[in-house]
Write a protein that binds this DNA or RNA. Structure first.
Length: 778
DNA sequence: TCAGCTCACACTTTTGAATAGC
DNA sequence: AGCTATTCAAAAGTGTGAGCTG
């Protein structure tokens, strides 16, 4: 597949993939989901941009699709963690999530094929630090990384398949390696994220027309860390994760055992030393002291260690509070408080891609009861819900978790109100609260992002309202995804073209508004964000502390956020064709687009991700010829994060490539790809897998994205008309998925080739990843 | 000096190939 | 010959703690 660009919908983030609903069983809370990229963009963008496009077509939503429901099977476990403040370890090699996402789907058409995607978007623009027993927002978030999407290994599979079993995303891995080539989801450490699950009809992907459903469970929010900060979390992990069994009290790797081992070691050493020297005595002496008994173990150990070795690690390190005995030294656990602040801006990068996602038809969703809203992150919705819920509950202080999270009881409308509140409010939000509230609700993918929803839609309220409807229902609003819209926006489009696209759609100012966005295209995501800036107010992430109220400023990187991205989306959406694209295939737009990367001068595009990720599935997409010229953007981009990579499951890819993805309905042939075809010719269809992989070392540059206006989706519904190409998909604003090209490729080479090359890397038996971030792509 | 990150370590579970039995 | 069940080794996932980096 291509770059995500190609497929806006995929881009998840910001764009809408479909509808995103938060569902709470009980009460739907609507949490706006933000694609990472989107977020940024969103913030940057003026609200209106963000606002979900009016959804004219929403109508469709009512179909059965609407009834698609998703339940988080291990919600209780998640709630336990969220009540303390969930932390997820991220490593260079990639770390699985624990708890994992275990889901139950219902309401799908048994005979249709669906693709399940997982993406993780930043909840706010803040960076956190664990202080005083709680999480506090301490500054602006880092530039957004390329958005990557994890495609469930079973994808595409029939509705019957998905509904007959528990769906687990445990194979998905998180990494902090921005140059990751394994296709793992790239996240920043000490940032707060929200996982989202997207259900897309396979044909949709291909066509772009299908409905999408996005689900968010607030309780699954987490803060990334490279080492656990909260002892309570460590305990929970050890007690809940089978792999950590050895660290349990009774395990062989328990502190006790470890101490004992160390002691033994020490003893041996001391003996040796004694023999050799007398000095060792010291250590030996110490040893005795160690307390007696169990605790003693620890103490002993400490003593031993101390004696023998270099100073022991801080006692504080000791995890278990329980082991108070040890604790003398240890630092007592602290309640987590997450201070959340929003950084409104994050400019960061923009992962714009996400941003693109923005709008979507909010309205439609709303209708459904769903919330589209993207309102960004959470804005209101979150806040509201969360706040109420429990701000406290969760460990994350700042952000309040939605109470419900756990219960998910519906948090009806209130959220809205809440949301509003929250934002302004306080910085620190309780994580939990947020989560909770959201939990149930689905969000529509419409990612409207944080950005202030357009008047209506955009506004969080809608979301809320939607949410209010019952969580249970979760409306998923199937939205067709129009690639166009959102996604693109998200992309920072450096190039004028792109920008133009976006711009067109979006008021220039809006874009401009945010400094951060600055650049061209960015608007996208930023748009949403923008609000955020205020964000804090705007978004409600409960958790989020307003700390960084202004995003823009905060994010210096205006450039990064470039609205441009939109371009890509645009193209897609516009063309019905786009829809037709099979994943693999590249949207026509794309074809037009020249890939920055392509250009020899790699400089422009840096698709860091690309290169790595690549597990692209074999979607074959034809790439449009890279005519893309990508003006090298002058823009500086922030280092780009490889967002774009998509990892696709092999199966998925295969299917895709084979057309399997294509449901009967959609055949690759049909794919919009025509361009593809053309492209194919010139660019053979790229396999999705490949795309992700763009490994191109080159950092991603938003600008690239910008170039292609066509691609850019319309961010603002309101704007839309201007360019709206005939969208294949009616309505909505879905995010286009974008596939990235291989930077290398830059070339004219058909993507496939490119990808194929890369693929090897990605092929993950367990699942594939797509780099959604379109941005990176171009 | 310190916060944050990386790495090696020991332990555990999971996975898959090899083998045995029916 | 084909299928299923069992065994075993390798691979991979975990938190820990020391060391490194900026």
């Amino acid at each position: 597949m291509l770059s995500v660009d190609m497929y806006p919908s995929l881009t998840l983030g910001p764009q809408r993939i479909g509808d995103c609903y938060y569902r709470d069983r009980e009460a739907p809370a609507h949490l706006p989901l933000f694609p990472t990229a989107c977020d940024v963009a969103a913030k940057a963008l003026p609200p209106r941009l963000l606002a979900p496009p009016p959804v004219p077509s929403e109508p469709a939503t009512k179909n059965p699709k609407d009834e698609v429901k998703m339940e988080l099977e291990n919600a209780s476990l998640w709630k336990q963690f969220s009540s303390v403040g969930t932390e997820m370890i991220i490593t260079k090699k990639g770390r699985r999530m624990f708890p994992g996402l275990r889901l139950k789907l219902s309401g799908l058409n048994p005979s249709l094929r669906y693709i399940l995607l997982l993406d993780i978007i930043p909840v706010d623009n803040s960076r956190y630090r664990f202080q005083g027993g709680g999480w506090q927002a301490v500054g602006g978030a880092e530039a957004r990384l390329p958005d990557r999407v994890f495609i469930h290994p079973d994808s595409p599979a029939t509705g019957a398949h998905w509904q007959s079993r528990t769906i687990s995303f445990h194979y998905a891995k998180l990494t902090n390696n921005t140059l990751d080539s394994q296709g793992h989801i790239i996240l920043h450490s000490l940032h707060r994220y929200q996982p989202r699950i997207h259900v897309i009809e396979a044909r949709d992907v291909l066509r772009w027309g299908g409905g999408q459903h996005s689900f968010v469970f607030p309780e699954t929010q987490f803060i990334t860390v490279t080492a656990y900060q909260n002892n309570k979390i460590t305990e929970l992990k050890i007690n809940s994760n089978p792999f950590a069994k050895g660290f349990r009290e009774d395990g062989m790797n328990s502190k006790k055992q470890r101490d004992a081992r160390q002691k033994r070691k020490m003893a041996v050493l001391t003996e040796t030393l004694d023999i050799v020297n007398c000095d060792p005595c010291d250590s030996t002496e110490l040893l005795p002291q160690p307390t007696t008994t169990n605790n003693t173990t620890s103490t002993d150990l400490q003593a031993l260690t101390l004696a023998s070795l270099p100073p022991l690690p801080d006692p504080s390190c000791g995890y278990r509070p329980e082991e108070a005995s040890y604790q003398d030294t240890l630092v007592p656990e602290q309640p987590l408080d997450l201070g959340q602040e929003f950084m409104a801006s994050q400019i960061s990068d923009i992962s714009i891609s996400m941003a693109n996602g923005i709008q979507d038809t909010p309205g439609s969703e709303a209708a459904n009861g769903i919330i589209e809203r993207p309102d960004t992150l959470g804005e209101p919705a979150y806040t509201s819900t969360f706040s109420a819920a429990q701000a406290n509950s969760s460990s994350f202080p700042s952000a309040q978790l939605p109470q419900s999270s756990a219960s998910f009881s519906s948090l009806p409308v209130p959220d809205l109100s809440d949301t509003s509140d929250p934002q302004p409010s306080i910085p620190p939000i309780d994580y939990p609260s947020i989560l909770s509230s959201t939990t149930p609700s689905l969000q529509q993918t419409s990612f409207t992002f944080p950005t202030p929803p357009p008047s209506n839609t955009s506004s969080p309220q809608p979301l809320l309202s939607s949410s209010s409807p019952s969580a249970d229902t979760y409306h998923t609003i199937p939205e067709t995804i129009s690639p166009h819209t959102p996604t693109d926006t998200s992309f920072p489009a450096p190039s004028s073209t792109c920008q133009s696209g976006l711009q067109d759609q979006i008021p220039a100012h809006s874009l401009l508004t945010q400094p951060s966005q600055t650049l061209q295209g960015e608007p996208i995501t930023s748009g949403n964000n923008t609000p955020s800036d205020q964000s804090s107010a705007v978004f409600i992430y409960p958790n989020i502390l307003p700390t960084n109220p202004d995003p823009a400023p905060a994010q210096p990187l205006p450039n990064q956020h470039q609205p441009p991205t939109p371009n890509l989306p645009c193209s897609l959406p516009t063309h019905g064709a786009a829809t037709s694209f099979a994943f693999p295939s590249v949207p026509p737009h794309m074809q037009n687009l020249s890939f920055p990367n392509v250009s020899p001068s790699p400089a422009h595009l840096h698709l860091p991700n690309l290169s790595h990720q690549a597990p692209a599935p074999s979607l074959a997409a034809a790439f449009p010829p890279s005519t893309f010229t990508h003006p090298s953007s002058s823009l500086p981009h922030p280092p780009f994060q490889p967002s774009s990579c998509l990892a696709m499951s092999s199966s998925f890819q295969q299917s895709i490539s084979s057309t399997t993805l294509l449901p009967p309905t959609a055949h690759p042939q049909n794919l919009p790809n025509p361009p593809a075809s053309s492209s194919t010719s010139s660019y053979p269809p790229v396999e999705i897998g490949a795309i992700p992989q763009f490994n191109p070392p080159a950092p991603y540059r938003p600008e690239m994205v910008l170039h292609h206006p066509s691609l850019l989706p319309q961010l603002d519904p309101s704007l839309p008309s201007s360019n709206p190409p005939p969208a294949l998909y009616p309505a909505f604003p879905s995010y286009p998925l974008r596939l990235r090209q291989d930077p290398h490729s830059s070339l004219s080479i058909p993507f496939r080739h490119l990808y194929r090359q890369h693929q090897h890397g990605h092929a993950h038996p367990q699942g594939s990843y797509l780099d959604m971030s379109t941005r990176p792509v171009f």
